[in-house]
């Protein structure tokens, strides 16, 4: 297993965010976490990256315990995160934003190659390389933060609500890029999404999270037709 959560508990200000979450992700997989706002999906990502400290349980990455480590060293192990709400560095150029993604890497030529790769994937960024990131549209910013995460050349990519606040037409584009990143580059993906339909259609497996617990898990294809999932997360229709 690439990533393993065992009975992870986490709380903020004495309020439980995660009440014993167990989940895993195999190399090469795309796994989706679906659920309503405040269910604890983002807490799972914050726990992995070390931005939030867990109370008990364990998190391991490629067999190594990573809970308790600081975010900087976890990034260095090959986990990159695209935070919710895009979070570009608004007063830095698009290029500097991308270069920040490669912060833990060394080797100028290597980084240059990654930059070219990202710009090839998102040609829109190439046109705006010198522009301040804060002046980009929402969709472009989302491409930028995904590109920035790829600059770390991660083994595991964590995506927190990549479709949030993006024009519907661009959501398709973003979904397609996630599939390509997983399929073509062999990057494993852990995807947190409120847009459950999109998340289930591009992932291999999924976990449905409610109030800090995993309630349903299984293959995404099957979950799309699961009556409980349909009722709770897909709004019934279609």
């Amino acid at each position: 297993m690439l990533l393993k959560f065992e009975d992870v508990k986490l709380y903020y200000d004495r309020v439980f965010a995660l009440r014993g979450v167990t989940l895993d992700l195999a190399e090469g997989e795309t796994v989706a976490l679906i659920g309503a706002n405040g269910a604890g999906k983002s807490s799972i990502l914050r726990a992995i990256t070390g931005l939030s400290k867990i109370e008990s349980g364990s998190i391991s990455f490629r067999g190594e315990r990573i809970d308790g480590r600081d975010p900087a060293s976890i990034v260095g192990m090959g986990i990159a995160m695209v935070p919710e709400g895009r979070r570009v560095f608004p007063y830095m150029s698009v290029k500097d934003n991308l270069m920040m993604g490669a912060f833990t890497r060394s080797g100028r030529a290597d980084i240059r190659r990654s930059l070219d790769g990202v710009l090839e994937r998102f040609p829109r960024l190439q046109e705006r390389l010198r522009q301040s990131a804060g002046t980009l549209s929402g969709g472009e910013q989302q491409m930028l933060v995904i590109g920035r995460a790829l600059m770390a050349r991660p083994k595991l990519l964590l995506l927190d609500e990549p479709s949030l606040g993006i024009a519907p037409k661009l959501v398709q584009d973003i979904a397609r890029s996630i599939v390509r990143i997983n399929r073509d580059d062999g990057v494993s993906v852990l995807l947190v999404e409120q847009n459950s339909r999109m998340a289930l259609s591009i992932s291999h497996r999924a976990y449905a999270i409610t109030t800090g617990n995993v309630v349903i898990s299984g293959e995404s294809r099957k979950l799309l037709n699961d009556s409980r999932i349909k009722a709770a997360y897909l709004g019934g229709a279609v």
């Binding site: 975010p71 990159a80 995160m81 935070p83 560095f89 912060f103």
Partner: peptide, 16 residues
Amino acid sequence: RALAQDRDAAQLMGVN
């Protein structure tokens, strides 16, 4: 500069 603009995001880039 990254740290000044967004602390969390800078940490996610590996800035200590």
